[in-house]
């Protein structure tokens, strides 16, 4: 019974694999180069989003933890809107919005995409930061205070390192999601990795590049996983 089932699966795999026409070496190189072009854009979106969203997120965190009610309310409302709507919708809105609403020349594709990504990810990061900051016990601040430290010293010498240690795992998650989310840039025709593969598939009438790019994403996220693992390990010398 089980044997018959396994045979069925095996046959299916054989059929599937033999159905794929393995590309010749020249096509493979051509496609790889084209995909690398797309991958460059993917990397660019990824890097610039991180560079913008990591600090902007901290600013939003301070806003959402502000003692001034209006600032706090506005920031929280903003975060709610951004987290509550699809990133794809936000990209479309940033790209077409200015033209449609204000009848002005919109942004170019790439800047629009990057702005949408930065804002979106800054909001997610800000919530992670906030969770991290709020998880540090009041006692740590008070210990610093009774030792005559300034607020700045307390934040940078005591709190920050502990926050970073605590947020590394959720940040790793979020950043890996970002790798995959970069593929959303194709909705406004930015030729990132996935779009590049789609174009090749359309032009050359071959399907395998779509699977091939999976390896790119896996490699990328694999490297990030290792990097985050290393950081976690490095901070493992203490608990708390």
């Amino acid at each position: 019974m089980a044997e018959a089932f396994l045979v069925k699966i095996w046959n299916f795999i054989i059929q599937f694999v033999s159905g794929i026409n393995l590309p010749d070496f020249k096509t493979f190189c051509e496609v790889t180069l084209q995909l690398l072009d797309g991958f460059k854009l993917t990397l660019l979106i990824f890097a610039v989003t991180l560079a913008g969203a990591l600090p902007l997120g901290l600013l939003i965190t301070f806003g959402s933890m502000s003692k001034i009610k209006i600032i706090k309310g506005l920031t929280k409302g903003f975060v709610w809107v951004i987290r509550g709507t699809p990133l794809m919708l936000q990209i479309i809105l940033v790209f077409y919005g200015p033209g449609l609403i204000f009848k002005i020349d919109g942004l170019n594709r790439l800047p629009a995409v990057i702005i949408a990504f930065i804002i979106n990810y800054a909001c997610y990061f800000s919530e992670i930061y906030r969770g991290g900051i709020e998880s540090i016990s009041q006692g740590q601040y008070e210990a610093g205070q009774v030792l005559g430290m300034t607020k700045t010293q307390i934040f940078f010498r005591i709190i920050l390192a502990q926050v970073i240690k605590r947020i590394i795992p959720p940040m790793g998650n979020e950043i890996i999601t970002l790798v995959k989310d970069t593929s959303l840039a194709r909705v406004v025709s930015c030729v990132e990795l996935l779009k590049a593969a789609q174009e090749i598939v359309g032009l050359k009438a071959i399907i395998w590049p779509i699977f091939y790019i999976g390896a790119f994403y896996l490699l990328f996220t694999g490297v990030l996983t290792i990097v985050f693992g290393k950081i976690e390990k490095k901070l493992d010398y203490y608990k708390g």
């Binding site: 740590q140 205070q145 009774v146 005559g148 005591i158």
Partner: peptide, 24 residues
């Protein structure tokens, strides 16, 4: 103000029930 408060605090030391050592 914060600065004066800080110097005045230093007249006292406080040992907490929960130690509150800096873990890092």
């Amino acid at each position: 103000n914060e600065k004066n408060l800080r110097t005045k605090r230093l007249h006292f030391g406080l040992v907490f029930q929960q130690f509150n050592l800096f873990p890092q």
